[in-house]
């Protein structure tokens, strides 16, 4: 059953289109990550769904209820949509209990028990209920903000770059805890982020935005391995782009014959490979290349390879396990795992 349906959402600020006919359907209980470079319109989309801003055109429908129809919108405070801002936006004049209880009805029975449940839900110590927000760490603030939004049992939860203000070390643990909490609560969630790693690990549906348009939506695995264009590919990770000739089955390029879905195309094309598709060996198979540079990263290495064929130089980077790595300057055989992706003629 579909819960949230966005269709044809557009919004302009002066001459720039922040949203350009964005349509997206979000299933009940799923976690959607919206990624895109800054200025791609992802935060605007979130604000329109939350009701902080009105679209110029398009509709927002949640559970069959129309929340926005062009510039006519339902007020944010009646939408039952939770929102967690970048820095948590905790009320500095209230303690943690006051923040958690802000959205509860004043005559809510068992208020104390509810607060206790909420603080347990986000894995914080109940002793923190009497603390002021400035006495909490960044990660604790974010978890309180999440619990505060969950207190109202929202039909939909929106997270606006919720981890970007945290230190790298803290980020991962807070993200895991938030994902756990959301899964436990079973609430449909949309998260906006510019961190591809965060998006890929958080989401069961990924939406990529660029220049106000939704360019691709699908399962993270699908979008990572089969991006619609090179920009999307690079947004989610590194990529190697090579010239190739389309054959009857697959393609051929400097790396030899590779598997690929050609979709009936012929002639020349550009193909994309992820750096982790390469295998290096001292015995073959595959064409030979020279190791020009090794960037050691712990478990993995980024290896820059130089391949000379018919007098033309090709340089590309492979991500390979760092154990048993050949020496700098040595010649290795390069093979490719899996299929190459054919890029669009213009891509």
């Amino acid at each position: 059953m579909t819960r949230l349906v966005l269709s044809g959402l557009s919004k302009r600020y002066g001459a720039t289109a922040a949203l350009d006919a964005v349509s997206l359907a979000v299933e009940r209980g799923s976690r959607v990550a919206i990624v895109g470079p800054s200025g791609s319109g992802k935060t605007t989309l979130l604000r329109v769904v939350a009701g902080f801003e009105a679209p110029d055109a398009g509709t927002v429908v949640l559970d069959g209820q129309v929340l926005a129809d062009g510039p006519a919108i339902a007020p944010a405070h009646r939408r039952r949509i939770g929102f967690v801002a970048q820095d948590g936006a905790l009320f500095p004049h209230l303690d943690v209990a006051g923040n958690l209880g802000f959205g509860l009805e004043r005559d809510e029975p068992d208020r104390a028990r509810r607060l206790r449940e909420l603080i347990d839900l986000v894995e914080l110590d109940p002793a923190m209920l009497s603390r002021k927000p400035h006495e909490l760490s960044g990660g604790q603030q974010q978890r309180v903000a999440l619990a505060r939004a969950l207190a109202r049992k929202p039909a939909l939860m929106l997270l606006d770059e919720p981890f970007s203000a945290l230190d790298t070390g803290l980020r991962e643990s807070v993200r895991e805890s938030v994902t756990r909490v959301l899964a436990k609560a079973g609430v449909t969630t949309i998260m906006v982020t510019h961190d591809q790693g965060e998006a890929l690990s958080f989401a069961d549906q990924l939406a990529v935005m660029r220049g106000g348009r939704l360019v691709q939506a699908g399962r993270p695995y699908e979008v990572y391995w089969r991006p619609v264009d090179i920009e999307t590919a690079l947004l989610l990770g590194n990529a190697v782009v090579l010239d190739a000739t389309i054959e009857a089955v697959g393609v051929s390029c400097v790396l030899g014959r590779l598997a690929a879905e050609t979709g009936g195309r012929s002639g020349r094309a550009r193909i994309m490979l992820r750096p982790e598709q390469f295998r290096l060996s001292l015995a073959g198979p595959g064409p030979q290349a020279v190791i020009e540079d090794i960037d050691f990263r712990g478990g993995q290495c980024a290896v820059t390879l130089l391949m000379v064929r018919d007098g033309a130089e090709t340089r590309f980077t492979a991500h390979v396990p760092s154990m048993d790595l050949p020496e700098l300057g040595s010649a290795v055989f390069v093979s490719v795992n899996g299929a190459a992706l054919l890029l669009g003629r213009t891509g």
């Binding site: 944010a76 405070h77 929102f83 936006a89 009320f91 500095p92 959205g103 903000a145 505060r148």
Partner: peptide, 23 residues
């Protein structure tokens, strides 16, 4: 001292504009 994010947070927690102003 009152960034707009705080007023938005209050709205998303169900407070109408008048009660947001007061609270």
């Amino acid at each position: 001292q009152v960034p707009i994010e705080l007023e938005r947070a209050a709205a998303s927690l169900g407070r109408n504009p008048a009660r947001t102003l007061l609270a």
